[in-house]
């Protein structure tokens, strides 16, 4: 049974192709329904799910995991992130934040944990319109067109510093959405020359 489940989800993910963030087309809807049927036990999956209903198994996209012992601290992840999403290289608009200590030879990466109980989503006054959860992958993402930049989500994020930030010029929130809709997956992982970034598929919701 398990391999069948896996291939169904995988097929679903691949079928999504290049959907625009925030949009839901018929193909995705049907595919999502298929996944939900395959899971069986997850009732009402075709509707927008509530956080409580997200189980690890239904959250296959996972989250970015940073291996600080491999990381060289170059920051290509952040530059590529900003270039891909914002069409310009601006460190402040990168979805992840690299913290370097050049005299210690150490670095860490602040990036969204894709919480199972997402504070940003819960505090969003326009949830499911501005701050959404991908029905298939469980990724939390911002629909930039619908967000008015009230910043409640940044206060709702349990992490310090908050992993969802405000774009001061465009007046909307932004966060890591695992490059939702990008064929090759998250661009930071693709271009990390040190292999320090991976996606942890099974999201336990607990920080490593």
């Amino acid at each position: 049974m398990l391999p069948i489940l896996y291939s169904t989800i995988r097929g679903t993910l691949m079928a999504r192709g290049k959907n625009k963030p925030g949009g839901t087309n018929r193909r995705e809807f049907l595919a999502g329904t298929g996944a939900a049927l395959a899971f069986g036990a997850v009732g009402g999956f075709a509707a927008r799910i509530s956080p409580a209903a997200v189980t690890p198994a239904a959250n296959p996209a996972g989250r970015i995991v940073h291996n600080s012992s491999l990381c060289a601290g170059c920051g290509v992840c952040g530059l590529m992130c900003s270039l891909y999403h914002e069409k310009e290289t601006i460190v402040a608009l990168s979805r992840s934040e690299l913290v370097r200590e050049p005299f210690e030879g150490a670095s860490s990466l602040n990036v969204c944990l894709q919480c199972l109980s997402p504070g940003c989503y819960q505090s969003c006054p326009r949830k499911d319109s501005a701050l959404c959860i991908d029905r298939i992958t469980g990724v939390k993402y911002v629909n930039h067109e619908k967000c008015d930049g009230c910043a409640k989500c940044t206060q709702g994020c349990p992490m310090k510093p908050a992993r969802i930030k405000l774009n001061p010029d465009k007046k909307h929130a932004f966060k890591c959405d695992l490059c939702r809709g990008r064929d090759k997956g998250p661009i930071c992982i693709e271009y990390c020359s040190q292999h320090a970034l991976t996606v942890m598929r099974q999201n336990s919701g607990v920080q490593l």
């Binding site: 012992s69 491999l70 990381c71 060289a72 601290g73 170059c74 920051g75 290509v76 530059l79 050049p102 005299f103 210690e104 030879g105 271009y191 020359s193 040190q194």
Partner: peptide, 27 residues
């Protein structure tokens, strides 16, 4: 050898970062 290091924004990271107790750390 603690890890690799290099210039900001470059994928090559051609340096090594060494940490020798009592003497010092650096790339």
């Amino acid at each position: 050898l603690k890890r690799f290091a290099g210039c900001h924004g470059c994928p090559y990271q051609c340096m090594g970062f060494y940490d020798m107790p009592g003497i010092g750390k650096g790339a």
